[in-house]
């Protein structure tokens, strides 16, 4: 069983701090008044399972520090370009890798660290993640992974994704969704063909590429009636 490194948790605790924020209004989508860096949008993931939010969005993710990939414009994010730039064969450490929080991986000339985080809102604000780590925020690729535990086999559900900008998504190693072009994030933007979640462990991986945009993504599963799937959990250990 994988465990979140104590070092990583310590680093995150220092990065995220303990500042209390006054919320602007009662809304689950409302950001805090101070939106600088990671703290407003992430907290360290704890060990064990985490249920999706009340609308089924997956909030617990392993995120890799951004890979530098300069793009002055997002108009070049054609399907062909994105499939090449975000091929699953390029998953950091190889497709068989089992990344852990706090571990690093060599990507090109960069040594990049995995972080285990819980998004506070429905979306995963990659821009703020990078900003909080003092990493590049533009011209970047982000990789993400989460593990899904399902109490039963669930057929005919769909992976629903929104991302800024283009992205690719895989469920249990199979391509589920591709979002191409100069995308802005909107929930349920691209929805996969019907897929099956196995009883027990499943893996969702994704990669987001952006040039000058404000990178983020949101992911959930929806059933045949378009309703969120909530009787699953995410975990990183």
């Amino acid at each position: 069983m994988r465990t979140i490194s104590k070092l990583a948790l310590t680093v995150l605790a220092l990065l995220l701090g303990g500042t209390a924020f006054a919320w602007g209004a009662e809304s689950r989508d409302m950001p805090p008044l101070d939106t600088r860096g990671m703290t407003p949008f992430f907290e360290p993931a704890t060990a064990g399972p985490k249920a999706p939010d009340d609308q089924g969005f997956l909030q617990r993710w392993l995120l890799l520090e951004p890979i530098t990939k300069p793009n002055a414009s997002n108009t070049g994010f054609t399907g062909a370009y994105v499939r090449d730039a975000l091929a699953i064969s390029g998953f950091p450490g190889g497709t068989a890798a089992q990344p852990k929080a706090g571990t690093t991986v060599q990507m090109g000339g960069e040594s990049l660290r995995w972080y285990a985080l819980d998004a506070k809102l429905f979306d995963v604000k990659l821009f703020s993640f990078a900003q909080g780590l003092n990493k590049p925020v533009y011209g970047v690729i982000f990789w993400a992974e989460t593990m899904i535990d399902s109490p039963r086999e669930i057929r005919n559900i769909r992976l629903a994704v929104g991302s800024n900008s283009a992205s690719m998504w895989w469920v249990n190693g199979e391509e589920a969704a591709g979002l191409f072009g100069d995308r802005r994030m909107v929930m349920d933007d691209v929805v996969s063909a019907p897929i099956t979640l196995h009883k027990g462990r499943n893996i969702v991986r994704g990669a987001v590429i952006n040039g000058p945009g404000f990178s983020d993504f949101c992911v959930r599963f929806i059933d045949e009636n378009g309703q969120p799937v909530r009787d699953i959990t995410t975990r990183l250990d």
Partner: peptide, 16 residues
């Protein structure tokens, strides 16, 4: 002060 929703009920705070 919102929340602002589109014709599908998607909040503009969720990209709608």
């Amino acid at each position: 002060q919102g929340p602002y929703l589109d014709n599908m009920g998607i909040p503009l705070l969720r990209g709608g």
